[in-house]
């Protein structure tokens, strides 16, 4: 018998263009995702899709639960935001941050989501105080590891130490594939051209990005070489995005935290003519998680809308599902062939 596989999921983050256009209600958006068969998992960002989040009325809770059930989705992950800079005069204190997240944990509980995405702006002291709430609400806290938070980043190391100390099944990680990229997405590079960046500058940026040096050293080298070619400060600012948005962590580095992985963010930007994602090695990453024993969801998270409106979120998530499905079936077939 074949083993269970990693499951597909769609994050409504992928439809930023469609959602911000105001042309879709939540029901219409979810209906379209169902029609295109982009489940079974569904991921919702509270502050994107739910007005009044995290203080939801009973009616809203009933409505959202009804939609999830009606369209046959499995609630995979609700995304919290840890908005520590919501005040302009100062950052939220540890206590205030805890109080900011608690209602978001309960929103996940009431909506039926087993996992709540949290962000690195929640320091270990905050997470420690949230564990009893997460346990009571039966909601796992999944810390998103988004670039620049590689698994050996000092802040991540501190969190891993806390996880070890607490040893709670309610603490986990959500690796974001944008942390392990093989090249800068073309869509991002094309957007640089719109602000007058030359092909020569783009080539230099790509070359520096590939180097095994710390990110600050990359900023420095780019500053020096791009200035010498006459790049303006705003252009250099845009090029710096290539270093800050796209991580180069070895895919094998994830192995250490697979037992604590509670969800996956399948970030993607675009596809080549074969349906492959040129900037992220999906075959390699999914193999690492599958072989490491992960059997949760990989959630399609299309972020190309940050640079281009050439494609709809729907067509891009369809392509992403097709790619992941092909890779996962291939991995499973090979394993099955080995065991029979």
């Amino acid at each position: 018998m074949k083993h269970p596989n990693i499951k597909l999921c769609t994050s409504l983050f992928s439809f930023a263009l469609e959602w911000n256009s105001g042309k879709y209600s939540l029901e219409q958006l979810m209906s379209k995702v169902r029609e295109l068969n982009l489940g079974p998992g569904i991921e919702i960002i509270g502050f994107q899709s739910l007005k009044g989040f995290p203080y939801l009325s009973d009616n809203t809770i009933v409505d959202v639960r009804r939609l999830i059930e009606q369209f046959g989705f499995e609630p995979a992950c609700l995304d919290a935001n840890v908005d520590v800079a919501i005040r302009r005069d100062r950052l939220l204190t540890i206590e205030e941050t805890v109080e900011y997240i608690i209602p978001q944990i309960w929103a996940a509980n009431k909506l039926g989501f087993p996992v709540l995405r949290v962000q690195m702006t929640a320091k270990p002291e905050v997470i420690k105080k949230l564990v009893p709430v997460a346990e009571k609400a039966n909601v796992k806290l999944g810390m998103e590891l988004h670039t620049p938070y590689l698994i050996d980043h000092p802040a991540v190391v501190a969190l891993r130490e806390l996880y070890e100390e607490m040893d709670s099944p309610f603490l986990g990680f959500i690796p974001d594939f944008g942390t392990s990229m093989r090249q800068i997405p073309d869509a991002l590079l094309h957007s640089f051209r719109e602000v007058g960046v030359t092909d020569e500058l783009i080539a230099i940026t790509k070359e520096i990005w590939q180097k095994d040096i710390p990110t600050p050293a990359k900023f420095g080298e780019l500053q020096e070489r791009a200035s010498a070619l006459g790049a303006t400060p705003p252009q250099i600012g845009r090029l710096n995005m290539a270093f800050s948005m796209n991580g180069r962590q070895d895919v094998n580095a994830w192995k250490e935290i697979i037992p604590q992985t509670v969800h996956l963010h399948g970030k993607f930007y675009g596809f080549d003519e074969h349906g492959d994602e040129p900037s992220i090695d999906y075959a390699a990453i999914l193999k690492v998680f599958y072989e490491g024993g992960y059997r949760g969801y990989v959630s399609s998270e299309y972020e190309g809308t940050a640079f281009t409106d050439e494609f709809t979120g729907f067509e891009m998530v369809q392509k992403h599902h097709a790619l992941c499905k092909k890779i996962l079936e291939n991995i499973q077939e090979k394993e099955y062939a080995r065991t029979v």
Binding site: I45, F53, T305
Partner: peptide, 13 residues
């Protein structure tokens, strides 16, 4: 006007 982020923010931001 409308915001150009993907999620809601308070006016302070």
């Amino acid at each position: 006007f409308h915001s150009h982020w993907y999620r809601s923010l308070p006016l302070s931001c």
